[in-house]
Design a binder for these strands. Structure first.
Lengths: 190, 190
DNA sequence: AACGTAGTACTACAGGCGGAGTGGTGTCAA
DNA sequence: TTGACACCACTCCGCCTGTAGTACTACGTT
């Protein structure tokens, strides 16, 4: 088992692209090698087996989907009002739509986790933490709305992103914008 | 190309199970044969190629997820108030959770449709129709709430089902019930 | 009632693709 | 000099597709 950290990271990021492009079943050592443009056999040396590969990707994918620290810091400063919150949500949808393959890869991982307990454990932990962080953030911001509102917003935005990424013709850009705003409005009125 | 309709249907339903169990990439003629317990080569005779198989499954899956006609009829009778509507939504979540593999298969198809234009066209059509039907139903019922409310409810419930099916430990049964009710309440208050 | 025909079920096979895993060799740095 | 890693090559294996060929069944014809 090799341990060059940059290379490992490059392989994992390549694996995310493969997941998005080829699906979970297409995530093989060889495909990762090719995507990362390293000699065949390399991924084999960095991951014990496919299960290990899935688990490591599961640990990494969430880092790539979350905003970077600068964005988080910007989110925390300035007035915390409804307009600001709506801005943040638009930013979230835009960011994820931009890193398209990351979200698709996460969906693939979710489905795959049906068959891989280890992966499921990793994802459950990460996602539960993210939800809790969102709830805490909302509570700290002083904006109205309880944790149920936060979760409902989370639910709606997630599926909206799925819809955009998988069947883009279901909703127009315009409808998506309106839906995000309506969701935020409702989340803050309860 | 063979044309025994029952056999074709049996193969398609077997394909749905395969999709849920093995993922989109695992959907091969041979796997379908095995799942349907028919001799190897049969699926090959019923579908021109994998693309054809995907498209036919895409056309069928939605029928299996929708309530049967009896349920629909029951939904339309009786008083149409908020309590009734909430009941229907609970029924929906329960029904889909029960036919677990159908929904997972649909998710697989959505992801696969990223790579298959024909499949995407079929799914887009079906799902758009379903959303429109929901909007029309709500409008006809005389309950409060505009189409945005209906769609937001649709979004939230869909992701809630995803969450339940893929990472069941994220929300407890209790939380799921509360979320469904909160979502319905908000959808009817706007 | 016997026969022929068409459509379907089943079986078998040829050919190919792609992946896992491993061992060996080269290379660089401590 | 030694150890860790990059790179390369090779073998083994499993699975899939597509098709050809055979057997069966039902139905229509005479």
């Amino acid at each position: 088992m090799r341990s060059n950290p940059e290379r490992r990271l490059a392989l994992i990021d390549a694996a995310i692209e493969v997941l998005a492009k080829e699906g979970a079943r297409g995530l093989t050592f060889r495909a990762v090698d090719k995507e990362a443009a390293v000699p065949p056999g390399t991924a084999s040396n960095y991951f014990a087996n496919r299960d290990d590969l899935f688990t490591q990707v599961g640990g990494r994918i969430y880092e790539r989907l979350l905003p970077d620290e600068a964005t988080i810091a910007r989110g925390r400063e300035g007035v915390q009002d409804e307009t600001r919150y709506a801005e943040l949500m638009h930013e979230l949808v835009a960011r994820i739509s931009a890193f398209n393959s990351g979200y698709l890869a996460l969906l693939e991982l979710r489905l795959e986790s049906t068959r891989r307990p280890e992966l499921r454990a990793v994802l459950t932990k990460r996602i539960r933490e993210d939800i809790d962080a969102n709830i805490a953030y909302r509570a700290a911001s002083g904006l109205p709305g309880d944790s149920t509102s936060v979760v409902l917003l989370y639910l709606a935005l997630n599926w909206l992103i799925v819809e955009r990424l998988t069947l883009p013709d279901i909703f127009t850009e315009q409808e998506v914008r309106e839906l995000v705003e309506a969701a935020v409005r409702r989340a803050l009125n309860a």
